[in-house]
Design a protein around this nucleic acid. Structure first.
Ligand SMILES: [Mn+2]
Ligand SMILES: [Mn+2]
Ligand SMILES: [Zn+2]
Ligand SMILES: [Zn+2]
Lengths: 143, 143
DNA sequence: GCCATAATTGAAAGTGATTTTCAATATACA
DNA sequence: TGTATATTGAAAATCACTTTCAATTATGGC
């Protein structure tokens, strides 16, 4: 899993004529062993703990590359921070976000995806991607 | 329709101990007579055309109040600009966004909303609001 | 290995959108 | 009216990135 993503990234790097660097390896390692939905800031702090030399700009740049290579996806939950989550090829899911404690639940629903396509088709649209986020309170936070 | 929203906003202002001002009236007027999904910048420029004295900060602040009062909703289509659309109480819709020309189609789908509730319930969540955006190419842009 | 070439890096400066500050001004209501 | 309080616009500040640039590092060919 981790290895598969590392391989995909290495191949992406090679195919683009980019270089494999110590920093990219470290960032990928830490990223893949992190919780999903980490903000860039959170990942940066986590990185700094073990690898003090890594620059902010490098983290930003590298996460973009992860997304471009297909091993990660950029997400925005409306709090002004960009987050990245690791994602396998062909995988897709949507999110349930607790506005109380920040808990995030991932779900997939084929019926909704189907309906989305039908709606789009009805308006003549060809859908490339979509964003579905449900915000509310989790069981704990409902009190 | 416009009058109803004006009334709601006036009541909101009064209930909060805020004041009714010339600027708020003007901004509300221009906002309500504008296309939906205008960015703050676009609205600001439109305002400046007839009312050169209005400040940027006032527009930002006032739009926030509109959203808080329930007559408007803040939206983000991922282009880094905040937009506001006017919305009547109890009204809800989602968006289809053409990434080619920027066209936005609004739609409602009861079946999807229903499924969302079921999913949320399945995870013990109580949904407060949601965001569903379908991105792709409109009929024209598909070429 | 050693070199030339091109990509990468970190620090710092720059951006763009939005927010805050603050002194002047306007509103509400006694 | 008068007075307390909210509001305003301009400018400065903030926030989350993004770009610049000189120094450093990978890579591929000898
Ligand atoms: Mn996720
Ligand atoms: Mn809309
Ligand atoms: Zn919660
Ligand atoms: Zn289009």
């Amino acid at each position: 899993m981790k290895q598969a993503k590392k391989k995909i990234f290495q191949e992406f790097i090679a195919a683009k004529g980019l270089k494999s660097t110590r920093q990219r390896d470290i960032i990928l390692d830490v990223f893949l062993s992190s919780d999903r939905h980490l903000s860039i800031e959170e990942l940066y702090l986590k990185l700094r703990a073990k690898h003090p030399g890594i620059g902010y700009a490098t983290v930003y740049r590298t996460l973009k590359l992860f997304a471009e290579s297909g091993i990660a996806r950029e997400i925005h939950f409306g709090d002004g921070q960009t987050r990245y989550e690791h994602l396998a090829a062909g995988e897709h899911h949507d999110h349930l976000v607790c506005t109380g404690c920040g808990t995030i639940v991932e779900f997939e629903n084929e019926a909704i995806e189907q309906l989305q396509d039908e709606i789009a088709a009805g308006y003549g649209f060809l859908i490339k991607n979509h964003k579905l986020e449900l915000y509310g309170l989790c069981a704990k936070c409902r009190g």
